[in-house]
Simulated scan of single mutants.
Amino acid sequence: MSWVTSSATAHPHGWVDYRVTVMVDDQQRVTALEQSWKMDPFQSLTMVEGLENVEGNTSMAQRLDALGHEIAANLATQHYLTHVHDGDRELALGGIEDYTTRLDDNRVEFSFVLTLAEPQPLSDSLSWQIYDGTYFIEFLYDDRVEHPIQLLNAPSQCHAEIVHADPDPAVVARVSAIDVTDDAPDGIGKLFSDTGVIKCQSP
């Protein structure tokens, strides 16, 4: 997967450090996942070099905004690389409501609000995963921040947790052995994806 065109080639060639804020309305329903994706230094350098070579007199801020538009449009064709579940049932997504693209310490950061098609009651049955099915890009919760996953406007007895992926060693070995020119099986990224969950204690 690339940010402008999809790809199914190879195991991870880059990574994204990401954060998630679960947005809760006044009726204690989950309405959206606000996400911030920070591209790894090499991806960021490649993107910035491409923006610097764009012809015309547009500013870097305008070029970053255009890049964000391309990323958002591409994600719309790939289920936003986001999968939200209520128990075993996958929930429909609405779409990207808002986004910004900026440089942070020479890394490209794409932040956006991804809505659910229908608000869902805040409960322990809700979970989500963010991953590239081809495992071309690896998604990692940003361990440089204290709380890479948060709830916004939720009651005090609720909080979010990360359940780290624990893929079978045989799968890890199989993926590690994939040659750069070979295709990784589509869907393999799910096996390496951490899961965000909600935990609510009885009041």
Rank of each mutant, 00 (worst) to 15 (best):
E97C: 05
L126C: 13
L116K: 09
D98I: 00
R174F: 14
I130Q: 09
T134H: 14
H159I: 09
P121L: 05
I137H: 09
V172Q: 14
D182Y: 03
I188T: 15
L151V: 08
S156H: 12
P121S: 08
H79F: 00
D142A: 07
A170W: 00
D143P: 04
F192D: 02
C158V: 02
G133T: 11
L103P: 06
V171Q: 12
A177W: 07
P121G: 03
D124M: 09
D132H: 10
Y80S: 00
L93N: 06
E97H: 06
S156A: 15
Q129C: 11
K190R: 15
R89F: 00
G133D: 15
A165W: 07
R89D: 09
L93G: 02
V172Y: 11
T134G: 15
I188S: 14
S125W: 00
Q120F: 00
I137T: 15
T82V: 06
C158I: 02
Q129D: 06
L152M: 11
N153F: 00
L140G: 04
Y131R: 05
H147M: 12
D182P: 04
A160G: 10
P185W: 00
H85C: 12
Q129H: 12
E118G: 03
F192Y: 09
W128H: 11
D186H: 10
A184W: 02
P155R: 09
L151S: 13
T77Q: 15
V163G: 12
A117W: 00
T82Q: 09
E109F: 03
P155L: 06
S156D: 14
A160F: 10
A160S: 15
D142F: 08
E109L: 14
A173F: 01
C158T: 01
Y131M: 04
F192H: 06
D143W: 05
L103S: 06
Y141T: 04
S127G: 13
P155T: 01
I137E: 07
Q129Y: 03
